[in-house]
Design a protein around this nucleic acid. Structure first.
Length: 427
DNA sequence: AACCGGGACAACCGCCCACCC
DNA sequence: GGGGTGGGCGGTTGTCCCGGT
């Protein structure tokens, strides 16, 4: 197991591809599609294994590839995504249209890693190197420090530094206090937030399933682990000068009455996970006038998308995917306001449809940021690893303003939570 | 000019997982 | 249910290029 049968075959060429081979492969796939990759080399007249053909196509020949250097925005996006998704390059690649996982991986290993280290950030944990060293040293009694970390200034590196640093700065900078607001005192350091493992989160989600906001029931969100995150986003949104154009929900501004949304019964077909919003200039959505006409679409060219799973569009949950579906027509944002106190019940009395909710309030962000909202639900369903709160902290370590980070990260989770809840709704 | 080291990129390897028989 | 197979993914290695010495 593990080794492909084609790999045993002899007389197969290896190494760099010649232009002639590229042409053969390109011609074959453009005419016939790739079909079963193991048959491609034979049909295309190539002395390569199918796996090699597939890689060549995905990483180099695919027509929708964006060639050229990565922009700063793309690099920033990769860093933020890596903080959340870790080394799931293919997942990261889905958020960067035209970029391959291999390309991103290479960029990370050759360039970004180094940059982060120069900024005093550990590329693996996204924590400041000083903290990483400390945590490493503690259990091993080792007092060794790397040369990279020894000269790290937590306040340097072109970043805000870690959140604890920000908070310590805040203590000395009264002007920052309004930004962090009361949550600073409630939660002295985001790094201390104990976020339960993903498995526990799933358990909580499952156990509270009957209480999940839906068209059929209403109730509280039991002990929801992301509540702290929402606290921050809520508070930040109130300070956002562009708040009128913000999606964030402010507990204060809602006068204590939770703005809640519920999900209507969702058919399996509506579980399609869009890979992006059509934000073309002629789309009313892009003008901030609403999302009623926004089009969700499947990136069928994406090798990681359902088109290449060979399972007829199955999304892994057994649901049929639609090539075009208007998620907004049917699905509703799940939880928009979560009380920080688990004892305080959030009564879901007010039913707001997602398009209504979004009408005129969707934040204007770059296309890349829109793509950022694609689902993490695969990760959650797999429950492969613990939820990485550190990744959220890492978002603070970049050059963006805290509001932007929170908005970006919570945007991801808002949408992912929506899809997770939809998934559970149908289990 | 030759050598060397690092960066960027391409490709391979080994493993996992889903699917099929 | 179990083994075989193909697709996919992440890690690693190989190769080329370029700038510095």
């Amino acid at each position: 197991m593990g080794r492909h049968s084609c790999c045993y075959k002899q007389k197969l060429r290896k190494g760099l591809w010649s232009p002639e081979e590229d042409e053969k492969l390109m011609n074959h796939i453009t005419k016939h599609g790739h079909g079963c990759w193991s048959t491609v080399p034979k049909l295309a007249g190539l002395q390569r294994c199918g796996k090699s053909c597939r890689l060549r196509w995905i990483n180099y020949l695919r027509p929708d590839l964006k060639r050229g250097a990565f922009s700063q925005e793309e690099e920033d996006l990769i860093i933020e995504l890596h903080a959340v998704l870790e080394n799931r390059w293919s997942h990261i690649a889905t958020r960067l249209p035209g970029r391959t996982d291999n390309e991103i991986k290479n960029l990370w290993n050759s360039c970004i890693k180094k940059k982060l280290r120069q900024q005093g950030i550990d590329p693996n944990t996204h924590k400041p190197l000083t903290e990483v060293d400390r945590s490493k040293a503690a259990p091993t009694i080792s007092t060794e420090r790397t040369s990279e970390s020894s000269d790290v200034d937590p306040s340097s590196g072109g970043a805000l530094g870690n959140l604890s640093h920000l908070l310590s700065e805040t203590a000395q900078s009264p002007e920052l206090l309004p930004v962090l607001g009361k949550h600073r005192t409630e939660t002295p350091s985001l790094a201390r937030l104990k976020v339960p493992p993903k498995e526990l989160f799933l358990d909580q989600l499952a156990s509270g399933h009957e209480n999940l906001p839906s068209g059929r029931s209403s109730g509280s969100i039991p002990n929801f682990p992301f509540q702290h995150l929402f606290c921050y986003s809520n508070e930040f949104s109130s300070r956002d000068s562009g708040g009128t154009n913000s999606l964030w929900f402010n507990q204060n501004e809602s006068s204590g009455s939770a703005v809640s949304t519920v999900m209507p019964p969702v058919s399996p077909s509506t579980l399609s996970t869009p890979t992006g919003l059509n934000l073309s200039p002629d789309n009313p959505h892009s003008g901030g006038t609403g999302v009623h006409n926004a089009q969700f679409y499947w990136d069928t060219a994406n090798p990681s998308s359902s088109s290449s799973t060979g399972s007829n569009g199955s999304n892994g949950l057994g649901f049929e995917l639609q090539s075009t579906s208007s998620l907004l027509e049917n699905s509703i944002f799940p939880w928009t306001d979560l009380a920080p106190d688990k004892d305080s019940q959030v009564h879901l009395e007010e039913e707001l449809k997602w398009p209504d909710l979004l009408h005129g309030t969707f934040p204007e962000t770059s296309a890349a940021m829109q793509n950022l909202g694609q689902s993490l639900y695969e990760d959650v369903v797999k429950a492969e690893s613990q939820f990485n709160m550190e990744g959220l902290c890492a978002a603070w370590c970049q050059n963006l303003q805290p509001q932007q980070h929170i908005q970006v990260v919570t945007d991801m989770y808002d949408k992912d939570l929506q899809r997770m809840s939809l998934s559970f709704e149908n289990i």
